[in-house]
Structures are given as C-alpha cells and as structure tokens.
Simulated scan of single mutants.
Amino acid sequence: MNRHQHTGPGNLSARNLSPRNSSRRDSSPRTSSPRDPGPWIPGDSAETLLVTGGETLRNEVERIVAAAGGQLRTVRDVTDAAPFWDDAAAVLVGSDIRELPLRRRAPAVLVGLQGDGDGLWHLAASIGAERVAVLPDAAAWLAEYLNRSRAPEPGGLVLGVTGGCGGAGATTAAIWIAQAAAGLGARVLLIDGDAGGGGLELALAAEDVPGLRWPDLAGVSGSIDPAQLDDALPTAGGFSFLSWPGTREPAGGVDATTVAGVLDAARRGCELAVVDIGRGREALRSFAWECDRIVVVVPARLRAAVAAARLLQELPPVETVLVVRASPGAALDGPLIAESVGLPLYAIMPEIKGLPAATELGRLLEAGRQRAARRFAEVFLDLDGGDDW
C-alpha cells in the first residue's frame, strides 16, 4: 500500500464538526483507568522516551527536556525501548535508528543534528514519524512540543491542501472547502502557508480587512490562546483567515516554532483548520508536517502528474488523497492521473466558467457559491454521506 494512502477514520462530517470531536492522532481525551489516573497536570510523572545510541544527540535532548521541566528516559535501541514505548508522553527517535518495533502508535518526533541534512525528512516519512526536529535550531520548538505532549487536548482537524504543480488550483480548493465548512456552522480558520504566493488575502479580496497577518506574529513563542488568536484575525466568507500580506515587500520572519504554535492554537480552537500549504520546501516542512490530512490538487496533465509524484517525497506520512482539476480538452482522465501519481482519487475539481477571472479579481468566494463548487467542497465534509477517505 502507498505510504500516503488513507487507512484511518472517516471524513470530516456534519456530525464530527461539533466542537472537539474531530481529533488528531493520539490527541483524544484520556479516560480514567487503573493505569491512567486522568489528565496530566504540572508535576505529573509522564516522561519522554528517547531512543538513540548517539551521545551528542542524547546530550542535546537532555538539555531541552530539563529546560522544559520534564523527565527523560533514554535507551540505546528499539529492543530496550519496547517496554516503555506506549506509556511515554512522547517518543523521540534519533536519526541513528532505522528500524522500529511493532507498536500501537508512531514515534512522535524524529530528532537529528544539523549535519544530518535533508535525509531526515525522507527517513521520517519512511518510518512514520509525525514530526522532524533538527537540533540545535529546533530546540525551542521541541521544548514547546514536549510541554504540549504532557497535556494532550482534544482538537479539530488540520487539513492541508497543496498543488502537485504550480497553478494547480490548491488555493481555490482550500478556499472553497473552508467556505463550505463555515456554511455548515463550523468554526473554521483558513491559513496561508505560502510566503511567496502573493497573499491569500488577495484571493479573498480581503486585503483591507483589519486583523493580524503572519508578520505580526513573528517571534511569537509558547502556547497561543485560541480565543485571543481568533479575535485578532480578519474574517471573510464566514471564516477567519491568516494570510501573508498581499504587498510587494518580501514576506518572512516567521519560524517553524511560531508556525507550530499557531497550528496548535488552530487545532484547539476550531473544528477545521484548512492550510493552503504552497509547494516550496520550507513551506512543506513548516506547514505540511503539522497537518493531519493532506489533499494534493493536480491538473489532468502528464507533466503535472510527474511533478505531483515527486512532491510526495516531501510530504509527511499522513492520510493523503488526490484531487484532479478538470480542464477542457484534457488528454488524461482522473483515474489514470491518480494511478500515475500513486494516490487514491478522491474528487474531481470542476471547471467553472469565468474561474480564471474570478481568481485574478479576488472573487473566489463568489465562485464558491456556485452549485458545482459547493458539491466539490461538500465531498470533504461528507455532507452527502460519501465513503470514508
């Protein structure tokens, strides 16, 4: 089975759009039992498990865990780790570990050192790690992650949308999905993950709507209050959004720690956060690896299918499906594109008359009210009782 093919729970639906119902892996509320006395509170004995034989890496992690006020258990290999794996608050696997034991849950974080390079992300995808931390640069992020792992909260779904090639229509799909969910009455946050994309706010014709943009959050660290974030963000189409500014000034200044904090707040404060990821390597590593599920949008063209297949190597090993964008005179059909890419075909994105002009003029919300666009977006909300993905 393809490592990105869905094998888990069902769609985001009218039922599970209720607050706190649609949860991330391992983030469901704990229930009391003889082995589990209840939710973690400061001072609880939940420990972090580190599996590595590397002394330098062990020293780095020890320093971070101590600064975060946690407890660390270190073992050299997966055989020694097995008795402690499932009871740990978080599992960290060093980049020197290449084979993992049979287990009930994936390792939370693959940790490595700066010299390990790009191979860390490929290793993480192959072993099923949920995150990657490159030390020492990611020390602040890892400390915050470990703090959250000791106090798990239920939360909403973070759905990433990315284009298999440039101009695929990922932004359009993300906006329509957010719009449809908001129309259902859900609390929705649409997040612009593409710093070089020109600003999601332009696609919404909302550049003049007051509220925070990404540069306003530069340097923010630690836990972000979901309600305060929501109050500070602009709204359009019935949902909140966080965009890079649609100006000519270069966008930047927000690191992975800030992104993780914002996505964590979005998960805790919304039923659905839709992330327009973008295609750049930095955006994929900052945003895609924070998503619970990913939708890849690709036009019905051979070159687009080849580009999308390459993109999969940069994506985390989470549930991933394909959307094929219809176009007049397309030489390839949806199933053939899906077979070429190696992802299950989930939906066909309709070709709507006047869509290119609507994109240029910031009228995607208006286009999203058309019946074909609504039907497409509702597939992701399971309003029609469709099959699980």
Rank of each mutant, 00 (worst) to 15 (best):
Q179G: 03
P42D: 00
W289N: 02
L263N: 02
T56P: 13
L50K: 05
S243E: 02
D333P: 02
L123I: 03
D387I: 10
A170N: 04
A205Y: 04
E47D: 11
V323G: 02
I64Y: 12
T7G: 05
I177S: 04
V161Q: 09
D116C: 13
R281N: 00
A67W: 09
N147Y: 05
R374H: 01
A357I: 15
A173S: 13
L217E: 01
V209D: 06
R20T: 01
A108K: 15
V61E: 08
L242M: 11
I277T: 05
P83A: 02
E249W: 13
L57T: 07
R371Y: 00
C291V: 09
L361G: 06
R369M: 03
G199F: 09
L332A: 09
A68L: 04
S22H: 14
A304G: 12
F287R: 02
T247Q: 11
R293C: 01
P350N: 06
L284D: 00
R325H: 08
P154F: 11
S223H: 15
T74W: 07
S95G: 14
A265Y: 12
E366W: 14
P316E: 00
A89E: 00
P152G: 05
D276I: 15
L322W: 05
Y145P: 07
L12F: 13
D216N: 14
R301C: 00
L72M: 07
G197R: 11
S221D: 03
R301V: 05
E60D: 10
T7P: 00
G211E: 02
R285S: 02
R325A: 14
V220A: 04
S221F: 08
A89Y: 04
W389R: 12
D137C: 09
A283Q: 13
S149V: 04
A358K: 12
E201G: 10
G160F: 08
R63V: 09
W40C: 04
A305V: 07
A168Q: 02
V321E: 00
Q114Y: 05
E99G: 04
V296M: 09
D292M: 10
A205K: 15
E366A: 12
A143H: 07
L204E: 00
D255V: 06
A307H: 14
L135T: 02
E153F: 11
R310P: 00
P210L: 05
A139T: 03
V91L: 09
V321R: 11
S22D: 06
Q179Y: 01
N21I: 06
A68E: 02
L157N: 07
